[in-house]
Design a protein around this nucleic acid. Structure first.
Lengths: 339, 339
DNA sequence: TAAATATAGTAAAAGGTTTTACTATATTTA
DNA sequence: TAAATATAGTAAAACCTTTTACTATATTTA
């Protein structure tokens, strides 16, 4: 229950002024080595810790970064969060996180909540419809870096995987191995990431003179539950008997897809070849091994936090056109073995 | 670049005093309906948001909770973090997270960093050796709830899965299905969670009059890398040919175990039956389905944050002996089919 | 009608820090 | 020796909010 010591207490204990203590603690001003030592000593002994609220109020700097992601519990975002925290910590920043669950309303609330001068900068997973809120932050002079997406047409720095290129590589892998009737399973939600992935699919088919067939593309409803999702995918497979390969646009879809194929007792890759976006342990272990697009999670997170930190330390340089598309790696496994 | 509006601005704009504005905004004092409306209106129009730093400085309340976990990027802790954030948000609290990576030094730093009157309360994954730091928080009158572990002998509220009971159920499942030569793979790190799990193993063997054999227990070094871990497990299996079942004490170990078994071309459950702690999609999908102990993630997280919030809203009631051990569910799959 | 009470509102202090502008010595320079 | 400068330190304002103790009317009560 003992009260926390303030700068005032240290001043009293060392017979000096508040200013002197503050100067010493912050390495400013002109103070003799003797008093410096004494103050540092007493501060140390009494376990002095600056009151962050007071510092924040006075300086307008909280040393806290807001991280707004789709779902902190997810594979990908969890991994990002880990890296971001570690890097931020090295520079004395802490992270407040919020999940939006891809819900625009929740996104709005979350940003509003964070913007009450509680946070110095933001890393945000963009969501269509959140443009105004994010712009409001930047006009309030708070640096923002978008991650895993961007706002088309807006000049906000962002870093994400090269979605289109990744899918191009994936589809080309199918083609190289002799698969030509390629399906694409995605989610029906307006995210640039997904649009770009679909684009990669279309582009590659065109480039290889393969006619794109509408019904080979499945767009799952956004909020479908797991059981029904598997059913829909099963149905899609049954109705597209001609398909010899399927590309799943996200990790989650890939897993659902494997479930569906399992329930239909179809063999991979003999009946159907498979590639999924986002690598994970399951894909490595699940026989015959599922070829996947491995996102450079570390690089994405590291770049994002680096850009943000550079901006926080010196916001003179303009970073508004820092737009990074980081290439992915395709990990070829048994699920795309030559036909 | 426009300055943020303060309570002072609102006062000026409405020809009233700062006090009046504060009263209206906080629903305190005695203010006529007319002025109330006017102030609320003007505040709304000018997008007034209280400066959290100033509020925090004055009231000593930050409305921020510190979450210290082993690894925010992990399955289990990510899931906890999600639930904790959602519940906290409902009560106007935000979450700052930090990962310790089970490193005691990092744990100390992290707690020290958070304790600079930046955080109202804590949810912490305990680590042997962090007792003093955590006690310091409670004596500073900051509520703490431990999650996924506890400090033996200390009176700090905590909530975790019933580790012993969970393993008892698992081992009993083996025995019920006819497996008697049961191995146990765990990690060599001093965490009560793991000690308790090992205890469950020993207890159940004893209860069933099965002699416990030292070398049937494998304790993997804490910081071993993935490749070597698999090698060690392979070795362990080869040197314990008599085993007909293995219990893996964590999710991560289970996955490594599957990898090892795969590389050894051993069949599950015909050569070796398998149970792993912590369910996940892989265990569901991986043939023949891996029996697992499913932790009640939601309940654990919900209980922890509820206890903390109750303490934050009214710290009169004593919660120091709120010690929850929540039962798990065993999900039986093909990997424990009758011998 | 005088006293008591209810109503509506305000001035000012406090919370802990940073920072500007300043003072009082001591030392150097011309 | 007088003036200039360097050295070591400080008083007080500011950041924005909450809250206590108070005032000035208006209304009710006896």
């Amino acid at each position: 229950m003992k009260k926390t010591v303030s700068i005032k207490d240290i001043a009293k204990l060392t017979d000096s002024s508040i200013t002197t203590v503050s100067f010493v603690l912050n390495g400013k001003g002109r103070i003799s080595e003797a008093t410096r030592k004494k103050i540092l000593d007493v501060a140390e002994k009494n376990g002095y810790q600056a009151n962050r609220m007071a510092v924040g109020l006075r300086t307008g700097v909280s040393k806290v970064i807001g991280l707004v992601v789709e779902n902190i519990g997810g594979h990908f975002f969890g991994a990002l969060a880990k890296v971001i925290e570690e890097e931020a910590e090295k520079h004395g920043y802490r992270i407040i996180y919020c999940s939006t669950n891809n819900d625009i309303q929740k996104g709005r609330e979350v940003i509003k909540m964070l913007s009450q001068q509680l946070v110095d900068g933001y890393i945000i997973t963009p969501l269509k419809g959140l443009e105004d809120e994010v712009l409001a932050l930047t006009t309030n002079n708070k640096p923002v870096v978008l991650i895993d997406g961007y706002f088309p047409g807006l000049n906000i720095p962002h870093v994400l995987v090269d979605n289109t290129g990744s899918v191009v590589n994936g589809i080309n892998c199918f083609i190289k191995e002799g698969y030509k009737k390629i399906g694409f399973v995605t989610v029906d939600i307006e995210l640039v990431q997904l649009t770009e992935r679909l684009q990669g699919y279309s582009d590659t088919l065109k480039q290889n003179n393969i006619k794109e067939v509408k019904k080979n593309i499945l767009k799952l409803p956004f909020d479908i539950d797991k059981y029904n999702a598997v059913e829909v995918i099963k149905n899609y497979i049954l109705k597209n008997k001609n398909l010899d390969a399927i590309f799943f646009a996200t990790n989650y879809l890939g897993i659902l897809g494997l479930q569906a194929l399992k329930e239909l007792k179809l063999s991979i890759p003999d009946d159907i070849a498979v590639i999924s976006f986002d690598d994970n342990e399951l894909f490595d272990l699940y026989p015959p091994g599922i070829t996947s697009i491995k996102q450079p999670t570390y690089e994405i997170a590291k770049s994002a936090i680096d850009i943000l930190l550079s901006q926080l330390m010196d916001n003179k340089t303009d970073i508004s056109d820092l737009k990074l598309q980081i290439p992915s790696t395709i990990i070829e496994r048994g699920s795309t073995r030559a036909k």
